[in-house]
């Protein structure tokens, strides 16, 4: 049974359809990415899954529980980090972790948790005096206070510097190793590519594709580019029969090949067969960002202010 299953979720606010018939299936122990630009409906979708919003229609099951009917039970096993929620500003790190831990029947030892998120030095610092990265780390600690079996992390690293971002990523990797199911809402390609097994791309309230990051790139059918140099004049006919190849351009001794699939492997073996020695090979693969653009038809920054 999947850890999280949402079927046919719909949610509208007035005339705006925030979530339009979304299906999401998250397997136990996987890190599942929800990728989309701001305003695409990601947060509404996951907050509905967390039972914080009631869908207009559709069903949700999280760890075998209905987020509305079994609300009290689900709260014990689902950790949530909300996008812009604050905590008691004048309370100190250790006080907040202890407070949130007390809400749960079982869970992490507060001091261990503080150490795990790297806030031991700040344990006596008020929340309002922490840096953005430290506040984010505390927010994760609070989401993990009850020792959850599944966690929803909404915009985990938005606004963090690169070092803090990497710190958050390694925390998610730790969760994955502990077998915790993670739903990671993001609009950052690098983050999703690095952490997630499966990724759902959400655009205008709909899921436009679900696959592994590599699968999404392949599915977008984008060309890869291979460049290399040859010692003698190159005969393009050498690559004639290779079905991955789409175009070949030989410019004196510099050759540029575009194509799809496992282009590098296919071209390499054709060159070996024809006894052509290639040097200085450079390979450019389409990125998840290219795939995202191809699948949604817009650059991700275009609605950044939404």
């Amino acid at each position: 049974m999947p850890a999280i299953e949402a079927r046919g979720l719909r949610k509208r606010y007035g005339d705006t359809v925030a979530v339009d018939d979304i299906d999401i299936t998250v397997e136990t122990g996987e890190v599942y990415g929800v990728l989309g630009r701001n305003g695409a409906g990601k947060t509404t979708a996951v907050e509905t899954i967390a039972g914080l919003r009631r869908p207009d229609s559709g069903t949700v099951t999280v760890l075998g529980l209905d987020p509305w009917r079994d609300r009290a039970r689900l709260r014990q096993v689902l950790g949530v980090q909300l996008q812009d929620a604050y905590v008691h500003g004048a309370l100190k790190v250790a006080e907040l972790v202890r407070l949130y831990r007390s809400f749960y029947r079982s869970g992490a030892d507060p001091e261990e948790l503080i150490e795990r998120v790297g806030l031991t030095e700040q344990r006596g610092t008020r929340f309002e005096r922490l840096s953005g990265g430290q506040q984010q780390r505390l927010s994760i600690a609070l989401a993990l206070a009850g020792g959850p079996r599944a966690v929803i992390l909404d915009e985990l690293t938005t606004g963090l510097d690169p070092e803090a971002r990497r710190g958050m990523w390694s925390m998610v990797e730790d969760l994955r190793e502990d077998g915790v199911t993670v739903v990671l809402v993001s609009h950052q390609m690098e983050e999703v590519e690095r952490l997630c097994g499966q990724v759902a791309i959400i655009d205008r309230g709909r899921v436009v594709a679900v696959d592994t990051p590599a699968g999404l790139v392949a599915r977008a059918g984008l060309d890869q580019i291979l460049r290399f140099r040859v010692a003698r004049r190159f005969d393009p006919a050498v690559l004639d029969g290779v079905e991955e190849v789409r175009s070949v351009r030989a410019d004196d001794r510099e050759v540029t090949v575009t194509g799809t699939g496992d282009l590098l492997q296919a071209v390499s073996s054709a060159l070996v067969k024809a006894d052509v020695a290639a040097t200085g090979t450079r390979y450019q693969q389409a990125t998840l960002e290219d795939a995202f653009l191809a699948l949604t038809g817009n650059p991700i920054e275009s609605e950044e202010s939404a």
């Binding site: 967390a50 914080l52 009290a72 709260r75 014990q76 949530v80 909300l82 812009d84 929620a85 604050y86 905590v87 008691h88 500003g89 949130y100 809400f103 749960y104 029947r105 609070l142 009850g146």
Partner: peptide, 16 residues
Amino acid sequence: YYRRTKILRRLSATPA
């Protein structure tokens, strides 16, 4: 202040 800063909302995501 708790409502404005969504502290109440954050708490509603816990068993409290």
